[in-house]
Nucleic acid binder design. Structure first.
Lengths: 152, 152
DNA sequence: AGTGAAAAGGCTTTAAC
DNA sequence: GTTAAAGCCTTTTCACT
């Protein structure tokens, strides 16, 4: 799907505030509300817009720490990769999981309440998944950026 | 700030669809629209809700690949860490940047259009930042999970 | 493609419980 | 804390450029 400068401008407004009204969006991008509405519906239907979500302060939910875990698997068969991914996806504290090239197989970012919660999560959840060979954890000391995609 | 089960339920609805109407939110959590509105405004004011954003399909914007870069810095002085973070934050393609404990200093996730774009980004942007000692890249082969925070 | 107006529906406030 | 109702604003459709 081809996106023109108006589409990108609309996405930019929605990135900053997904609850902006169509009038406000129109005023910011230089169109009336109707074409904004049409373009948004078109981008929703085309899958450009996947959805709208709220950004929640992790500390407010008691998640004081973020841990990045590197995982190596026993086997690189499609079945092992798939099963491991499925198991990961079912752990709510796992925020992101990427299958990667290079030294490790998976990069995982998890939200934990504290170091005890981290230990519990590793022992009771992660290490119980069959097929793990090795894992290495790094605590996040500072979160510098967590931005949306660049537009244009 | 203390969040009860209704607050968490409201956050859950907004995570799935930040543009849900107050009536829909109320119906899902078992309240009328007025208390939902009050609770949302309270959570916005308290910083529990940081904002509302749109999830965009990266491929639709031409970002076909994701790369995770591990960076080691020359020095661990506060000034170097701060300056490096500031430089990173100014690169739009840098989606996430975490200062971490362990073998490396920074974990960075970047969106790239293709491998040529990745090479250009590393050479023209990342390697130009003063203070970098070493970096290691891993291409993301599969994105398994990119979820919001667990509630409750 | 775009605008503007009008109907339908949702948001926000007030008032009462 | 809650619900209900009133007024206003937004979304959505439609006629027209």
């Amino acid at each position: 799907m081809n996106l023109d400068k108006f589409d990108l401008a609309i996405l930019g407004v929605l990135q900053r505030n997904a609850r902006a009204s169509l009038n406000d969006i129109g005023a910011e991008v230089g169109l009336s509300s109707t074409p904004c509405w049409n373009r948004i519906k078109r981008m929703e239907a085309a899958g450009v817009i996947r959805g709208y979500t709220v950004e929640i302060d992790p500390a407010s939910l008691g998640y004081m720490d973020t841990v990045i875990v590197h995982v190596t698997l026993e086997s690189h068969s499609e079945e092992t990769l798939y099963e491991f991914g499925r198991a990961l996806a079912s752990i709510p504290e796992v925020l992101e999981a990427f299958l990667v090239s290079g030294d490790y197989d998976y990069y995982i970012r998890i939200a934990v309440r504290d170091t005890r919660d981290y230990e519990r999560l590793l022992r009771e959840q992660l290490y119980r998944i069959p097929g793990i060979r090795h894992s290495k954890s790094s605590f996040v000391l500072r979160r510098l950026k967590e931005t949306p995609l660049p537009l244009g």
